[in-house]
Design a binder for these strands. Structure first.
Length: 444
DNA sequence: TCTGGGGTCCTAGGACCC
DNA sequence: TCTGGGGTCCTAGGACCC
């Protein structure tokens, strides 16, 4: 009964599931005329990239993160679709629900993959491989989507296994994968020995290049290297992580309730922005998107960060941490505007980002909740005076914060400071009043 | 071939406090 | 008067993941 190919939960406690070509597969599911055709989801313009490619497209060498122009060149018949993320989120929730029927101990990694910790099922008649097979069947029957399952002693092996479970392209042909793969403890060393360092979590192009220079191309090379030496090149954290992985050790647990730590919005423009006025104008809609995301999460943020990428692909960022949290677009645009004005613009701007982080519980936030309060509506509810005073404190705090930004970044910020009034703080103080009603305030 | 948008984590330096 | 060292927070940048 307990043959090597039928591990117990203790031998294979961690499960990883990954949906195949998720976005592209959903598009094909919803439009069967796409079946059998090369399909990609992503940005179709000159600056777009592929987010997901069907296996039919992969046969032509199309991959995720590839610029769309390159993908089109490799596969002239490629159908590039813009993506319908609300739809993908619905599918993703259904996918999560199916896995949750097995165990609630899951950690999501994006919409289309997750880890599950099977250890709470120890006392039940659950066999991990059977569970994996059953998951794939349900995902296929109920969602119409294909997936791969990996099982192992830890996250490292579970993830490596699920990659191995997938279909592959060999000589431009699609070859089926096994669907469910388990890395047995007896085979762990052999698995690692055959992998390039790039296959490890956390090793991207930059780290792989550094390792290559050190003559470390394979995981088996890493297993023999001195951690302190490696730390000199990669930093202590990365060195410790990679040395552990190379020995098959991975202490990361499946984190069930991970809270979001930042929200933001990045946009690459089809045509780069020139001049601070265009940048500030764009920042308004960014701020609105970030503010809505914050309120959707029920959070307020103390730190506002802006980043721009220029046409020469260099980037700069500025951030400011406030003594209070914000979640409305007028406060965010005021801070973001001041930060953006502190930046020199030697080139046109191809990307603008606005992010919010350092979250605070709403209940612990003193000032922001009354910022931009509508005095007229409030007077009908009583308590007008104290609320009105709170609002002013909020405005003053914000004004101080903006002043602080201006003072911190010398003359280049001062030269255009007048413009800020038009685009930033005045917008915040004047228009804010009309935008938010009393329901914004006095939340528990 | 020339690089999106959503995030996470790490590092290094400086400020500040004890 | 000049000085150490640790801890924490903030900032800017970089790498990575999906």
């Amino acid at each position: 009964m307990n043959s090597p190919s039928d591990p117990s939960v203790d031998d294979a406690p961690i499960l990883h599931v990954d949906l195949d070509a998720f976005f592209a597969s959903v598009e094909i599911l919803d439009d069967p005329t796409l079946r059998g055709k090369p399909v990609a989801v992503g940005g179709g313009g000159e600056r777009g990239v592929v987010a997901s490619a069907s296996y039919e497209a992969r046969r032509f060498g199309v991959r995720s993160a590839m610029p769309s122009v390159v993908a089109k060149r490799r596969c002239p018949d490629l159908i590039i679709l813009p993506g319908r993320f609300e739809r993908y989120e619905v599918c993703s929730r259904q996918f999560h629900d199916i896995v949750r029927d097995l165990t609630p101990d899951i950690e999501s990694l994006g919409l289309d993959e997750l880890f599950a910790d099977l250890r709470s099922l120890r006392r039940l008649p659950v066999r991990p491989i059977e569970a994996g097979v059953a998951l794939r069947r349900r995902i296929s029957e109920e969602l119409g989507l294909l997936s791969g399952v990996g099982l192992g002693r830890n996250k490292l092996f579970a993830k490596l296994a699920s990659k191995q479970s997938k279909p592959r392209i060999v000589n431009h042909r699609l070859v089926d994968g096994p669907g469910v793969v388990w890395v047995s403890p007896a085979l762990e060393r052999q698995w690692l020995d055959e992998l390039p360092v790039r296959a490890l979590w956390g090793v991207g192009p930059a780290t792989a290049a550094k390792l290559e220079k050190l003559g470390l191309r394979w995981v088996r090379d890493l297993a023999r290297v001195d951690e302190a030496t490696l730390a000199g090149h990669l930093g202590t954290a990365m060195a410790a992580t990679l040395c552990a992985y190379a020995l098959g050790e991975d202490r990361r647990s499946v984190e069930v309730n991970r809270a979001v730590k930042s929200v933001g919005h990045d946009q690459t423009f089809a045509k780069s922005l020139t001049g601070i006025a265009e940048v500030l104008e764009a920042a308004k809609s960014h701020a609105g998107i970030v503010a809505r995301a914050l309120r959707a999460e029920g959070r307020v943020a103390r730190t506002v960060t802006v980043a721009v990428r220029f046409d020469d692909l260099t980037s700069v960022s500025r951030s400011q941490t406030l003594s209070f949290g914000v979640d409305d677009e007028y406060a965010i645009v005021a801070i973001a505007g001041a930060l953006l004005q502190s930046i020199d613009y030697p080139h046109a701007v191809r990307l603008l980002a606005v992010h919010a982080s350092s979250f605070l519980e709403r209940a612990n936030n003193q000032l922001q909740l009354t910022f931009g309060f509508d005095v007229a509506s409030n007077s009908a509810r009583g308590g007008a005076e104290s609320l009105s005073r709170d609002r002013q404190v909020g405005n003053e705090a914000l004004r101080d914060a903006v002043d602080e930004v201006r003072q911190k970044f010398g003359s280049s910020a001062l030269a255009t400071a007048a413009e800020l009034s038009d685009h930033g703080l005045d917008v915040a103080t004047q228009r804010g009043r009309h935008a938010f009603g009393p329901e914004q305030h006095h939340e528990p």
